[in-house]
């Protein structure tokens, strides 16, 4: 099983894609580490992670069926 990643705004630009799959990682801290290794520009920006559309506020376990979204700072309105 893989986990599905959605990227938005500046993160989609940095990654060069807005949707992809990752091999399972244990938790969101591990995912951040993996992503920041793959896309070093992420190290210099703030972004939040949502699991199944809920923004998380601390390290959370990742289930293989969940949808992970990478959210740069919002700029609507």
């Amino acid at each position: 099983m893989k986990i599905s990643i959605l990227a938005f705004g500046k993160i989609a630009e940095i990654a060069g894609k807005s949707q992809w799959e990752e091999i399972p990682v244990q938790d969101t801290d591990s995912l951040r580490k993996k992503l920041e290794n793959d896309f070093p520009a992420l190290q210099n920006m703030s972004y939040r992670i949502a699991i199944n559309k809920q923004i998380i506020h601390c390290n959370q376990p990742i289930q293989s069926s969940c949808e992970i979204a990478l959210l740069p700072p919002f700029s609507g309105g």
Binding site: G9, E13, A50, L71, P72, P73, F74, S75, G76
Partner: peptide, 19 residues
């Protein structure tokens, strides 16, 4: 609201807005 704005300049460069 998860909305993102890409600010576009006349020379077609851009920057990402942050509220």
């Amino acid at each position: 609201l998860p909305v993102w704005g890409r600010e576009i300049f006349s020379d077609q460069t851009h920057s990402w807005k942050e509220n």
